[in-house]
Nucleic acid binder design. Structure first.
Lengths: 117, 117
DNA sequence: CTGAGTGTTCGATGGAGAGCGAACACCAGG
DNA sequence: CCTGGTGTTCGCTCTCCATCGAACACTCAG
């Protein structure tokens, strides 16, 4: 299936989902994963649009990482923008908080204790 | 093996987990399931100790149902007590709220409200 | 004691999704 | 142009878990 280039890579606009359109189950499922929790926390500790997808310290390959970001976008948790060859991220704090009050705070509040912070 | 001998007509005691000892991931995983969400909601709309396990309207057999209650106990969400041949339930509102503030409210708040369905 | 009702456990099955490697597409820089 | 860095997609594997049917355990009412 020789497919045309078009839909291929990260030059195509990232598909975003509005938090308002996200079901509760989708949000909970997105958030019930250790890797994604780590991503959200690291993202929360960084300024908006400063973290590229590859700059996160998680023990998975980039294929899985790309999948995780796709899930986070689908849950309305993360917004992405292309910046040169990189794709930078932003946590949708207020929008997500408006749809699921307290959930994001819960994820960040339960930070791992043990020093580096 | 020391067994509760004479006169002791006791069934296997339900194993409960204190919400304080529950990890965030465990709680989120427990809650990220449609059947268990239904159970929690129905339980929230009933008085404590008034609902037996079989009295819930969910489209699963009793084997699966028993498993779901086991998960809910393990997440510190539900407390059970044997009452005659039945096992009646209670939602651990305050205790769970203390450990995961806002989470229970989120589950109940989203009841029939429209997001994307 | 016997039978009905209730819930748990066991074994097996099916599907969802998390993971990887490789191939591909895009961008910036030499 | 070609190269290195970045991220997405595809095909595949593998593990986890939700589910069921059947067997078992227990309590209560006749």
């Amino acid at each position: 299936m020789p497919k045309e280039a078009a839909g291929g890579s990260h030059r195509a606009p990232p598909v975003h989902t509005d938090p308002e359109e996200v079901s509760l189950l989708t949000a909970l499922s997105a958030v019930a994963d250790p890797v994604r929790i780590t991503l959200i926390r690291e993202l929360a500790n960084s300024a908006d649009w400063t973290r590229s997808c590859g700059s996160f310290d998680v023990p998975v390959g980039k294929a899985a990482l790309s999948h995780h970001f796709s899930v986070l976008r689908g849950a309305g948790l993360v917004e992405q923008r292309d910046e040169g060859p990189k794709r930078v991220n932003r946590l949708r704090r207020e929008e997500f908080e408006a749809r699921f009050p307290g959930l994001l705070a819960l994820l960040l509040a339960d930070e791992v204790v043990g020093g580096a912070e």
